[in-house]
Design a protein around this nucleic acid. Structure first.
Length: 874
RNA sequence: GGGGACGUAGCUCAGUUGGUUAGAGCGCAUGCUUGACAUGCAUGAGGUCAUAGGUUCGAGCCCUACCGCCCCCACCA
């Protein structure tokens, strides 16, 4: 094969992906002879296109899946999308607005038609993007939260929960988004501190000169006040309890009540109670049987209960007018600046209003308990572990989950109301008549379910639940759930309690959380900042492998990371390095009959690289198991670039360019062996380049995707041999160093004298040393005494290397260098000596460490003597 | 109010159960058209591991305190 001089991913990425698809490699079978390994995708919203967060999701998951697949598991990466009820609906409404249309104009049916068209368009686009990333999803199982299976699961679950009494309908205070005109769950509200005010209002006591001062951050809600509460222990207000106040502007008479909820220390110690518009007030209202007066419409405007003066005004306009009016009638005591946490809709950012409303809820306490236990008893493990604490924290304080949404796009609530007798029918299938009165006049609940209600079922609804399908039996429970830590509450926690409740099993054993991909300056990527990065553009410029590698290297689980072009470039450079190293091997291998590794006698350098390879295999495998993908990728980077390219390939050149054909063939055998294994280790991270090269390595068959992942082989670990080889590299480094220190160009050939205890390994590699160090000749001597000419010299752990001084050398410079080196060695000696004179260390530290320290000390003392001799010689 | 991180080279970050002389990438300096690669090669400079104590034979790592920065949750009207 003809390989291009530089790595060009466009030449092969798309081609290889199509081939993988054609050959059906992504397909996971329920094969009883294999062990299943399943990961379901965190389904991207169909609202738009993928961003770098999705790219990270996919890279991590695909790396795990490919790794397991190569290890022989039946590895299923189940892809799909989320209908994203509210988010998508917001988008479609925006889109319609451009055409001058509203939801009302097109009607429910027309709206849903648009929504499905949207899904086709954007869902399809997301699939294409994922393919560009190289992910090995089983596309035959592509799922969607609103497809038939998932919808059936939603109904099954809803009805089961309802029948168990875990779903109920009731009037409660919920978070209302006036922008989206729907209820939200607690999790869907984002709080941010806004500069606001405290308005202190004076409510007069009926038929008296007395009054009570209350403070509020939302003065417009005073129109719905139905009491003022004080603490029962509060002496200041003891006499007021039970009295009647006259609500300013409204004229309604409201009682003064006593309730523990009121904090005597805070403000005036008296609180206006608006049960319809505040969660705490609602509770107080229940305790005291207060009327609930809602003064706001669904769109945030004031309703008829607000009175003629304010009816129809937007809440913020009403606020201003009310403050004006209160001022005018003398009820406004003062205005105080106040930083206040205000809730905003996580989709449209409107200020959320707590409003009393009839909604559907999931009773959380009974579901939370087993979900907490599962993590506490290690049936589910969070990586990093610290997130389990966050999870506990949330689960333990959880409130009932408001699941109904006043939207059209989503799973319609499977509840029907008989228009004849008022019977409520909760059913898995559409009922045709009322079981109570037989009437056929049934009307389905208008609302849809929280989008997260269906995502919570994702690990099993996508596998066939509630049917007992083959897939469900084989692939469920899934193995790893990987996503960003930002959706622990929305998604992970809810999958856990749903899985346990509906399938009787935890939905996955491991939760692997990653951080947020930020921009170069560490800011979150967002539309408003315009700092988002389109993965496709990055892929277009650098290739999918470079993007994948850059996202995964140098990143620890759960930690945020920063995206930068520089990182992708450096990943791309690494790809280029792999490409060229492979090109080198393949070019040299051309036309050569390569013997199997078993048939050749390994040279010392060969054993060294094989040893390095084996420890790399060990490290990669171990770290993949611990989900430390960054460490695994880093180990591969070092192995390939430093060990393989910078050292081994360079060491090989003397035999590759030499006359000995058998030696050349043997070297190529090792080169191919190491390259092949390195590519396999890399494949989970960078699937395309590894596949493209793998096929051209002599002796390989088929696709790397379905090859066996390397296994650590202790017979090939060659620990001793690898250690024995190090002096060769030390000598080379020494000579290079000496040359640089005297500004001698590396290409200048010099004669070397080496005094070594064990010269066998060095002489066996003298060709390589000569080539890599730039030596013209190598002579072994007993000691410096044997030298008649003046030399430059450097001491390594095992030998001393001398280079004739010649006229190149700057003696002062050399003296400085030696003096510095001497200082360092003396420092080491005193450190080691101190350690060894420390009884505690000698007695308590492990023996091998103590011995190592002794050996080190000896070595340093020896080095010191040699350096001193050299200094004298100068 | 409660909880969780982070602070290591100029920048971005690794550092696995405490144990060789604390690492990498980028940047910087110097020198190299060394028959795979300038998307490269070689060599080097650069760190009181935020600060102060403590535990230990031994601390970047464990404990305490403190400073700085960030995030999450809750929310007192």
């Amino acid at each position: 094969m003809e390989m291009q001089k530089t790595y060009n991913p466009k030449d092969f990425e798309d081609r290889l992906y199509s081939e993988w698809m054609e050959k059906n490699y992504f397909r996971a079978e329920a094969d009883p002879s294999k062990i299943p390994f399943t990961i379901v995708i965190p389904p991207p919203n169909i609202t738009g296109q993928l961003h770098l967060g999705h790219a990270l999701d996919n890279t991590i998951i695909d790396a795990l899946i490919r790794f397991k697949r190569m290890q022989g598991y039946s590895a299923l990466y189940l892809p799909g999308c989320d209908h994203a009820s509210i988010a998508t609906e917001v988008k479609i409404v925006e889109e319609m607005k451009k055409e001058g249309l509203t939801k009302k104009d097109v009607g429910r049916e027309g709206f849903l038609k648009r929504a499905w068209a949207w899904k086709e368009k954007y869902g399809g686009r997301i699939v294409e993007q994922m393919k560009k990333m190289g992910v090995s999803c089983d596309w035959s199982r592509l799922a969607f939260t609103m497809d038939e299976n998932c919808s059936r699961a939603v109904r099954e679950v809803f009805v089961n929960l309802y029948e168990k009494g875990l779903i109920y309908r009731g009037d409660r205070i919920i978070n209302w988004c006036p922008g989206c005109k729907t209820a939200l769950s607690d999790a869907e509200v984002e709080y941010s501190e806004d500069a606001s005010y405290f308005w202190h209002l004076k409510y007069p006591v009926k038929d008296s000169d007395e009054c009570i001062v209350v403070a509020t951050t939302r003065p417009e809600t005073m129109l719905g006040d139905t009491a003022v509460a004080v603490n029962p222990k509060d002496k200041r207000y003891e006499h007021m309890v039970g009295k009647t106040l006259v609500l300013p502007l409204v004229g309604r008479e409201i009682p003064v009540i006593a309730d523990e909820y009121v904090d005597m220390e805070f403000g005036s110690g008296a609180v206006k109670i608006t049960p319809a518009h505040d969660p705490n007030d609602f509770e107080v209202g229940l305790r005291h049987d207060l009327p609930v007066i809602r003064v706001m419409n669904d769109d945030g405007s004031m309703n008829e209960n607000a009175g003629e003066a304010y009816k129809g005004l937007d809440r913020f306009a009403a606020r201003e007018k009310i403050v004006e009016d209160l001022k005018a009638c003398g009820a406004l005591v003062k205005i105080e600046p106040h930083a206040h946490n205000v809730g905003h809709c996580y989709r449209c950012k409107s200020t959320v209003e707590p409003i009393v409303s009839k909604q559907w809820f999931v009773k959380m306490a009974p579901l939370a308990k087993p979900a907490i236990d599962a993590v506490a008893r290690n049936k589910i493990k969070f990586t990093p572990e610290r997130f389990s604490k966050i999870y506990f924290n949330w689960m333990e304080g959880i409130k009932d989950w408001c699941i109904s949404r006043q939207l059209w796009w989503g799973h319609r609530i499977p509840v029907w109301y008989c228009q004849n007798c008022g019977e409520m029918i909760v059913s898995k299938t559409d009922p045709s008549e009322c079981p109570h009165c037989g009437s056929r006049d049934l009307k389905q609940d208008e609302d849809v379910l929280d989008t997260w209600f269906s995502s919570a079922l994702w690990p099993f609804s996508t596998l066939g639940y509630p049917e007992k399908t083959e897939d469900y039996a084989y692939f469920y429970p899934t193995d790893v759930l990987s996503c960003g830590y930002d959706i622990i509450f929305f998604w992970v926690a809810r999958m856990i309690f749903s899985g346990i409740e509906h399938t009787g099993k935890v939905p996955f054993r491991d939760v692997l959380l990653h951080g947020i991909v930020r921009d170069e300056q560490g800011r979150k990527m967002s539309k408003s900042l315009g700092n988002g990065i389109d993965p496709l553009e990055v892929i277009d410029e650098y290739g999918a492998d470079s993007l994948r590698f850059s996202l995964i290297t140098g990143v620890a689980p759960g930690n945020d990371s920063r995206y930068s072009r520089g990182k992708v470039e450096s990943a791309r450079n690494f790809m280029n390095k792999i490409w060229n190293a492979s090109r080198f091997v393949l070019m040299n291998a051309e036309g050569v009959k390569i013997p199997p590794m078993g048939d050749i006698k390994l040279a010392s350098a060969d054993k060294w690289i094989i040893s390095r390879l084996e420890s790399c295999i060990k490290e990669v495998t171990l770290n993949m198991g611990k989900f430390e993908l960054g460490i695994a990728a880093g180990a591969l980077y070092d192995f390939l670039w430093s060990d393989f390219c910078d050292w081994y390939i360079e060491l090989c050149k003397s035999s590759l360019y030499g006359e000995d054909q058998a030696k050349k063939a043997a070297t190529l055998s090792v080169l191919c062996f190491v390259l092949e294994n390195a590519l396999k280790l890399l494949h989970p991270f960078v699937p395309f380049i590894t596949e493209e090269i793998y096929r051209n390595i002599p002796g390989t068959k088929g696709s790397i995707m379905v090859s066996d992942f390397p296994r650590y082989n202790s017979k090939l670990s060659y620990k001793k041999e690898a250690k024995a080889f190090e002096p060769v590299m030390d000598v080379i480094k020494c000579v290079r160093n000496m040359k640089t220190s005297v500004n001698c160009p590396p290409s200048k050939k010099v004669k070397l004298y080496i005094a070594a205890q064990n010269k066998r390994i060095l002489s066996a590699n003298s060709g390589a040393i000569a080539k890599l160090a730039g030596a013209s000749e190598i002579e072994f001597i007993e000691s410096a005494a044997a030298l008649s000419e003046k030399t430059l010299s450097q001491v390594t752990e095992t030998c001393t290397v001398f280079v004739p001084l010649g006229e190149l050398v700057d003696i002062d410079k050399e003296r400085d260098r030696l003096t510095k080196e001497l200082e360092r060695v003396v420092g080491e000696i005193s450190r080691a000596d101190g350690k060894l004179h420390n009884r505690g260390f000698v007695d308590k530290a492990p023996k091998n460490l103590v011995d190592a320290e002794r050996a080190k000390l000896e070595k340093f003392i020896e080095m010191k003597e040699k350096i001193e001799k050299q200094l004298k010689n100068l």
